[in-house]
């Protein structure tokens, strides 16, 4: 009996140690930091304050938050608009073909994401492939501004995060019983009605799963806004990064992080309410 107990403790230890040491303590420490004062030397004063949270509501930072949320929402929306028809159209194909095509979605994402982002610079810049092609076809007479602006950031975000939407949406769509759709067809429901009344409710959890996995990274991926935004557009990711790596105001950076964590938990709550499972999040 004792040996059994000892064995159980030994095998349980790693996961407990891991979740305490590398998850709980770091997060609790950030929470602790967020209530401390920062001194003008960039150090931390051990003195309680709510200043950092109040600072988030300064109009400068509210604007940055809003901008990030808009970029994140647009990215999510575009990903949904691509993933739905893509998954539905894929259903026409045979199963082996479908499996192959889904693997093909994954391959680009097994290469370095920065390299792919760099690929977009080569494509989108003023003298880039897109502009030169368009002007040689006489479609434009002045190069388009495709990057170093919000458009560039959104293209980069959609590109980087698209598979996280396609996969859950596809797996939800593929689970819909084809007979239900046929029955609806027989009953005279047109395409739009079939989409709204059958496909949407059946795939809601999948779409929300995808939306979480797209939206949350999108507000934090500072490297995309850095590279494709020309360093003039700040999203929450850049803001946090700056507090830790240039402005040396760790407590403020910590407060924004806690704000993001709380926000994420709210979204997860909604996800669970509509029947989503945590285990399916981020599953590739």
């Amino acid at each position: 009996m004792n040996r059994k107990k000892a064995f159980q403790i030994i095998v349980t230890l790693p996961v407990v140690v891991y979740s305490l040491l590398l998850i709980l303590i770091p997060i609790v420490y950030v929470l602790f930091l967020s209530f401390l004062k920062s001194d003008s030397f960039g150090g931390i004063e051990y003195q309680f304050t709510l200043e950092n949270y109040l600072m988030i509501f300064d109009i400068i930072y509210i604007k940055i938050l809003l901008k990030s949320f808009i970029i994140g929402l647009l990215t999510t929306f575009i990903c949904i608009c691509i993933s739905y028809p893509f998954s539905i159209f894929l259903m026409d194909k045979s199963e082996t073909k479908r499996n192959l095509l889904i693997k093909l979605v994954m391959i680009p994402f097994l290469t370095n994401s920065l390299i792919r982002t760099y690929g977009w610079i080569v494509l989108l810049r003023k003298s880039g492939v897109v502009n030169t092609t368009l002007s040689s076809l006489n479609l434009i007479d002045k190069p388009l501004n495709l990057m170093y602006n919000n458009l560039g950031i959104i293209i980069g975000m959609v590109y980087t995060l698209l598979p996280f939407m396609i996969l859950p949406v596809y797996s939800a769509v593929s689970k819909i019983d084809a007979r239900v759709i046929d029955a609806a067809k027989d009953l005279g429901a047109n395409k739009i009605k079939r989409f709204i009344h059958i496909i949407v409710p059946e795939t809601l959890a999948g779409v929300f799963n995808g939306s979480l996995m797209v939206f949350i990274p999108a507000i934090g991926y500072f490297f995309i806004s850095d590279i494709l935004g020309g360093g003039k557009i700040m999203i929450v990711g850049n803001l946090i990064k700056n507090q830790f790596l240039t402005a040396r105001n760790w407590p403020f950076g910590a407060a924004i992080s806690i704000f993001l964590i709380v926000f994420t938990f709210l979204l997860i709550r909604i996800y669970k309410k509509i029947g989503g499972k945590l285990d399916e999040l981020g599953g590739l």
Partner: peptide, 20 residues
Amino acid sequence: LIYIPIVIPEIVLGIALLSV
């Protein structure tokens, strides 16, 4: 706890680990 690294923005985990 084990879901936290999956759901929170990576940057938050990054700064949390750095701080610790």
